[in-house]
Design a protein around this nucleic acid. Structure first.
Length: 814
RNA sequence: GCCGGGGUGGCGAAAUCGGUAGACGCAGGGGACUUAAAAUCCCCUGGGGGCAACCCCAUGUGGGUUCGAAUCCCGCCCCCGGCACCA
């Protein structure tokens, strides 16, 4: 085929098509799930199949993961590299509404397009194990997982606020609320509404989710994001007794400042508000509570806005000073964090300071800086107590313990850990998701759908759009909605909410190896063999939600004895992001890179390799159209070398030392870099190698022997798989280049026999001398002194000291 | 505001247990080949000075530590990401 081109030059389109077909025919990329001896599960984040098609960010992520998988395969492992589609969810649904087409009709076409694009990228995917979250064969088991959690008491129903657009009469996601208004109705203020929703009590797993992070081989950046998301803070709960009856418990991380607590602030929804409000304050308090309740969740939580609040008329006793202090309500205190009430210490908290200043409340200084003048609010821990009775003079850290212990004696304090992480609300008042498998019966209450009745199919209704009826789309379909109670048989109703897409993706990696079974979500034996995942590569945009939920679901399944590991991903690496010409890619800027165009113009191998060359993989980089040319030239040169070879060197022939040495150095460098995902420098090393083979300033090798080319092609194979296969074949091999062994290097052959030793005088480079490696300091100094330039700069000065870094430099201090 | 990551030639970037700054590539310049062009090949290419051997300056910015700092420490500026009234 390629021979039909007159000059037999490199034609990517021809050889890429040829090898894609070969791989299919020979089942090169299929994994023997049952028989594999050295299983290596190489996972990448399955995409949401958008209508726009695969974007360059997907390509970057997948290619980087694929290269790692191919590298592991060449190391002799049985690599399993599956792919699937995360096609449920609000993105698909909103797009379907926009183009007025049912998502069930839209998605298959999108998936088909993605599959083709993924094929063109030359990924080593095993398509026998494809997964699609919208397939009833898949979401049956998503529902099954819900039931497992329900039965374990980890799925509970509770009221929670949602964003509600009075015009759409539907629930909005936070990102659909723009400055307090509906994205579709810019004049309509979004309000919060309380709905009964299903929650997974992930907070029961907080400590484990946090502590396990220590032992995971994950990108540090990802672990940090998770740690911050969990947001552990250590403090105490303090009791403020209300003389007229009741107690208000506050959470604080600064019990040391309790002597400065001059008022309390409750969240407007706090249950004690009713009780402490005085009759004359009631109209104002009620008005404020109504105002807070009407706000959308996003605006309500927004910081930095002007503080508002009202006095309730009630008082509570400060447990440290014994004084009665006023109780206020304000929306800067959130019901869902801590106890929904705070002790306000305006002298030492910026928010309380702002509030006190605004409403003329007392500000008391109880901590003085260790050094420097006082200036309130002083929020640092680096201070000593004042105006705090017997605790005066104590350092803050010490005072926290002492004061907590002192109040604890009188049962007014208890040490406490508080977390930012909330329970996971999985209810979505939408259409495009797996129905939550619950039935409500007037007699029996909430009844789970029996396992034998799974899946609860999502009906293919045409009016999937949210309308002004005020109920979920599914509730409008009586034939689906009305169902007999599985327990008592009386008329009952289905749950009409669907589950969050993050539940779909929280277990997909468990399904891939087990796609040939429909009677169980994952096979025990196969799961034991292939999991946990050995390498997971993806973006940090999923660092907290997806990765946290996947860890949580895995822990639950472990505790239910369904799997024998509790962390799903042994190793995770976050890749970087790609920008274009220094700016973020966006449609409005018109700088979006469409992979298809570059693949059509340059071939997938060049495109893959350029993506990996444009910057460090874990940091991302700048995509410049002109960059493709360099890689293309590089592959052309390799191609020319392969064409020029006349096979193995004749027996006894001496290979050029310089090239052999560079080859071994290159194998070493590339091997090390691949393991660390340092693809850009690995490619640079391959370029350096061919520059040496081709001669550079020295005489070129007209016809390099196979010994110098075979290893190069294997090193290149993970980056440019089609190209490498073609070269491998042309070099006379019959097996796939991915079924051979990664080359070994010989440390002795890689060693230089002469190195350039830098000679510094007083830290400035003054000469470079060629010396054999391994000199002692005395020998090095002696050689340096023998150099003319060195003598000139020493200018007869006396050497006070010599610093020698073996084989690198010698520094003479005069 | 807080927590991360980053700032190096005209451009993308190398080099961080402190040890030759700018590997590799792009762009640019010069030359070879060609009737010519493209492609390819060879050489040059951080700034300044010098006929030259060479010298001086240079890793956001100001200090510091060190024989020696892109790398470590302190202050400041800018860019990217995350969190954001979390008590």
């Amino acid at each position: 085929m390629a021979a039909s081109h007159s000059n037999d030059s490199y034609h990517p389109a021809v050889i890429e098509a040829k090898w894609r077909q070969r791989w299919d025919e020979r089942r090169t990329n299929a994994t023997d799930i049952e028989g594999a001896g050295k299983p290596f599960y190489n996972l990448m984040m399955f995409p949401y199949p958008s209508a726009e098609g695969l974007h360059v960010g997907n390509a970057f992520a997948f290619v980087g993961a694929d290269i790692y998988g191919r590298f592991q395969r060449l190391q002799g492992l049985d690599v399993f590299e599956p792919m699937g589609f995360d096609a449920f969810g609000i993105h698909s649904e909103n797009y379907a509404i926009k183009v007025n087409t049912h998502p069930a009709r839209l998605i298959p076409a999108n998936i088909e397009r993605f599959r083709e694009q993924l094929r063109r990228l030359g990924l080593m995917l095993d398509w026998d194990h494809e997964v699609s979250t919208t397939d009833p064969r898949y979401y049956k088991w998503t529902q099954w997982i819900f039931l497992q959690l329900y039965q374990a008491g980890l799925a509970v129903k509770k009221k929670a606020p949602v964003n509600w657009c009075p015009e759409c009469k539907t629930v909005l996601a936070n990102e659909q609320v723009i400055d307090g208004f509906c994205e579709r109705h810019p004049g309509v203020a979004v309000i919060q509404k309380f709905l009964e929703q299903w929650f997974f009590t992930i907070t029961k797993y907080t400590e484990r989710l946090l502590n396990n992070l220590e032992k995971l081989d994950w990108s540090e950046s990802t672990r940090l994001l998770q740690r911050n998301w969990i947001g552990r803070s250590q403090g105490a709960e303090l009791d403020f007794v209300v003389p007229t009856g009741g107690t208000i418990t506050v959470f604080t991380t600064r019990p040391d400042t309790v002597f400065g607590a001059t008022f309390l602030v409750l969240a407007p929804e706090h249950p004690m508000v009713e009780q402490v409000t005085g009759a004359e304050r009631r109209p104002d308090v009620n008005a404020y509570r109504r105002h807070a309740a009407d706000m959308d969740i996003v605006s309500r939580r927004k910081g930095g806005k002007e503080k508002t609040g009202v006095f309730t008329g009630g008082y509570a006793r400060n447990p440290a000073t014994g004084e009665n202090i006023p109780i206020w309500i304000a929306d800067y205190v959130l019901m869902e964090y801590g106890t929904g009430a705070i002790m306000a210490v305006p002298g030492h908290d910026e928010r309380d300071f702002e509030f006190a200043t605004q409403f003329g409340l007392e500000i008391r200084e109880v901590v003085k800086p260790v050094a420097g003048p006082s200036s309130l609010p002083f929020v640092s821990y680096d201070g000593v107590l004042v105006n705090s009775g017997q605790f005066d003079g104590l350092h803050c850290r010490e005072a926290i313990e002492k004061i907590t212990a002192w109040l604890a004696e009188n049962k007014l304090a208890v040490p406490r850990l508080q977390y930012r992480l909330h329970d996971w609300c999985i209810s979505r008042q939408r259409y495009w998701g797996p129905p939550i498998p619950m039935i409500y019966c007037d007699a029996c209450g909430a009844v789970p759908v029996p396992e034998k009745d799974l899946p609860v199919l999502l009906p293919l209704i045409e009016d999937f759009r949210p309308d002004d009826s005020g109920v979920s789309p599914l509730a409008r379909h009586q034939e689906w909605y009305r169902v007999p109670c599985p327990q008592c048989g009386k008329a009952a109703r289905r749950e009409t909410d669907v589950s969050d897409t993050f539940l779909d993706s929280a277990w997909y990696f468990l399904r891939y190896p087990s796609t040939s079974f429909d009677d169980r979500p994952f096979d025990q034996k196969i799961t034991k063999k292939w999991l946990p995942v050995r390498s997971y590569i993806g973006g940090n945009e999923h660092a907290v939600l997806h990765l946290m939920y996947a860890r949580f679901i895995t822990m639950v399944l472990h505790d239910l004895k369904l799997i024998d590991f509790e962390e799903p991903f042994t190793r995770f690496r976050a890749h970087g992001t790609i920008v274009k010409d220094g700016a973020k890619m966006s449609k409005s800027r018109g700088n979006v890179v469409i992979p298809d165009e570059f693949i059509a113009d340059w071939g997938a191998d060049t495109f893959r390799m350029y993506l990996m060359f444009l910057g460090p993989y874990q940091e991302g980089g700048d995509f410049q159209d002109s960059g493709m040319a360099g890689i293309s030239r590089f592959l052309d040169k390799v191609w020319a070398l392969v064409r020029a070879t006349r096979g193995a060197a004749p027996p006894g022939a001496q290979l050029p030392t310089r090239v052999v040495r560079k080859l071994h150095q290159t194998i070493r460098k590339v091997t090390d870099d691949m393991a660390e995902l340092h693809y850009n420098t690995a490619i640079a090393a391959l370029m350096e190698y061919i520059n040496v083979v081709r001669g550079g300033e020295q005489a070129a090798i007209a016809s390099p022997p196979a010994e110098l080319l075979d290893p190069l092609i294997v090193l290149l194979a993970p980056f440019a798989p089609h190209f490498a296969e073609e070269c491998w074949e042309r070099l006379g091999h019959h097996e796939s280049v991915f079924d051979v062994a990664w080359p070994d290097y010989d440390e002795a052959l890689a060693r230089e026999d002469e190195i350039a030793l830098v000679v510094q005088i007083n830290g400035k480079v003054r000469a470079r001398i060629m010396v054999p490696p391994g000199l002692s300091q005395e020998q090095a100094v002696e050689r340096a002194l023998a150099d003319g330039a060195v003598q000139k700069f020493l200018d007869g000065g006396r050497i006070k000291k010599a610093v020698y870094v073996p084989d690198r430099l010698v520094n003479l201090v005069v």
